[in-house]
Write a protein that binds this DNA or RNA. Structure first.
Length: 518
RNA sequence: GGCAGCGUAGCUCAGUUGGUGAGAGCGCCGGAUUCAUAACCCGGAGGUCGGCGGUUCAAGUCCGCCCGCUGCUACCA
């Protein structure tokens, strides 16, 4: 067991009845950025992602394609795994809910909840929307002009009457409200918390948690005609991956309760209401925080197949490269709010922030070291007020970044780092080392050292967003692998003088439009 | 209908508990420079802070009403 503080972070598990879209990738890179940040900041991080593979929608999609569910999964899940790979995720595990370990886990939590008296059998009759995965009361539905009955979301519903097991969610209303009150950071952003509190305050109905109308799911223990409601199945993935039901094993003891579930704002209720109740019922602790991120829009429009503006995340990778795409989404979008993207916006960020500001700064300063100092890191002389000022700003980045990341304000963390990039450019221009080369070579060396030191700290802090590019930058500074974590930021670990640097190469190329088709 | 939030320069947005002449980035215009990825640096253009009214010595920042937008939720039908 590690002496480091544990940090367990998860994405939601993706529903692979289709191929990955940019929304999946967005959640993945944001969560990965947080995981990497915590790891570099000295935490013992466990990072989980995966796929949610049961449920009637999966079955129906497969049937439409003339496939079995397993065949559909065999076709789609590798795409999600390729996305995880392609976007550079540092996950420790990839869970699939069709795995045997998960079946055992889901059945175990069911039995715990049943043993606690929270599950009872009754009859459910009502209107069910497959698309919404939800039941509606008669008066919540409407008949449209074609005689088709629709649910409140406008999706078709069908009459379902079946035996069902119910979870006594109503018994947890007050406990949930108390938990929200005692843990104001449980649901973030705050606006989401208000919505959940308001919803729970309005009263909770018991939840139907089994189905008998189809069989693509995990059988209810002792009553295999029933399969579990997908959310009981899906949410449990977070503990399955820690070895549940073996709650005494190191993995579970170390990492549960989870520190952070990163999810889309559309599934807040399942994570902030149902999930804690299930856990308490099973005698387990609720997670520390559920963060609901926003949705992405393509040029301000919601992505939809009919509009034809669905963006394939792999296309973005091919067009811009993984690190620029990661940087763009994490910098441009306020984490927790909806965001918009477009080719122009991505290129603007890529060229302005990465190529012009950071990349060019590294290139111009390092190439001066290469050309004038034979690639040897100079020894600084006496530091001027300007030297001290920029170093002090660089030293202050970590605190600001940490503070931002405490509330998952990824965009604030990045803007704090890039504010220093901008200031470093001003510093460099004002110090004009190319002029000092003739008038005051020692001072030129000092300026180049200060600049390289500032770049060192920026690169270390850029690792969570752009792991590959930041590593290249650190390679250019000949920084050993074991001194690239946040413990090596600040005045206590300045860039060593005297070392020889490799020949500088561009790390962040400008994006130039491909030649117009001729 | 209820609850919550939002509406600030062309665009995307910051603006702590009300107090020097309202900001940043991008874009645009002009200048400077040549170490560098035609990049960096400097300067500028420039918005009735959605509208009206109010509180205050002082409001983008508080109160009321109105308009527009978003989310959650309820209900009518």
């Amino acid at each position: 067991m590690s002496s480091k503080r544990p940090f367990y972070i998860t994405t939601a598990i993706a529903y692979p009845n289709g191929v990955p879209h940019m929304g999946h990738a967005y959640e993945a890179i944001a969560t990965d950025c947080i995981a990497r940040f915590k790891r570099l900041d000295g935490y013992d991080v466990r990072f989980l992602t995966g796929t949610d593979e049961h449920g009637i929608k999966m079955l129906q999609t497969a049937q439409k394609a003339g496939l079995t569910p397993r065949e559909l999964l065999a076709r789609n899940v590798p795409r999600f795994q390729a996305m995880v790979e392609g976007f550079g995720l540092s996950n420790d595990d990839f869970i699939r809910t069709t795995e045997e370990r998960h079946k055992a886990s889901a059945q175990a939590i069911w039995e715990k909840m049943a043993a606690n008296g929270d599950i009872y059998k009754s009859t459910y009759a009502g209107w069910y929307s497959v698309r919404d995965e939800a039941y509606y009361a008669e008066d919540e539905t409407t008949l449209n002009s074609d005689g088709v009955r629709l649910g409140p979301q406008g999706t078709p519903v069908e009459w379902v009457e079946e035996d069902s097991y119910f979870f006594r969610l109503s018994a947890y209303q007050q406990k949930l409200l108390d938990y929200y009150a005692a843990n104001p950071g449980f649901i973030m952003p705050e606006a989401r918390r208000n919505e959940v509190v308001s919803f729970v305050s309005g009263g909770l109905q018991d939840l139907s948690i089994s189905r008998t109308t189809f069989d693509w799911g995990i059988p209810v223990p002792g009553d295999p005609k029933h399969i579990m409601y997908v959310w009981v199945d899906a949410l449990t993935n977070y503990i399955t991956a820690l070895g549940y039901p073996d709650t005494q094993a190191d993995l579970f003891r170390t990492y549960w309760p989870a520190n952070l579930h990163v999810i889309g704002k559309d599934i807040i209720r399942f994570h902030a209401v149902y999930w804690p109740a299930f856990l308490w019922s099973a005698g387990l602790a609720a997670p520390d925080r559920v963060f609901g991120h926003g949705f992405l829009f393509n040029r301000g429009e919601k992505m939809s197949k009919s509009v034809g503006n669905v963006v394939d995340p792999f296309d973005l990778l091919a067009a811009y490269g993984v690190d620029p795409v990661r940087y763009f989404f994490l910098r441009e979008v306020s984490f927790g709010q909806d965001g918009s993207y477009s080719h122009d916006a991505i290129v603007a960020r890529m060229n302005a922030d990465l190529a012009n500001d950071l990349g060019n700064l590294a290139q111009r300063s390092l190439s001066m070291i290469a050309k004038n100092l034979e690639g040897v890191v100079p020894t600084p002389g006496a530091l001027s007020a300007e030297d001290e000022a920029i170093l002090s700003l660089a030293d202050g980045m970590l605190e600001k970044a940490r503070e931002a990341m405490e509330s998952q304000a990824i965009h604030h963390y990045l803007s704090a780092v890039w504010a220093v990039v901008a200031e470093a450019n001003r510093y460099f221009a004002a110090a004009a080392p190319w002029a000092l080369r003739k008038t005051d070579p020692e001072k030129m060396g000092t300026v180049l050292w200060v600049t390289a030191e500032v770049i060192r700290q920026i690169a270390i802090l850029a690792q969570p967003v752009m792991p590959t590019s930041a590593a290249k930058l650190l390679d250019l500074l000949a920084l050993p692998e074991d001194v690239r974590d946040f413990a090596h930021l600040g005045a206590g670990h300045r860039l060593a003088s005297g070392g020889t640097l490799p020949a500088p190469v561009g790390v962040f190329p400008r994006y130039v439009e491909p030649e117009a088709a001729g």
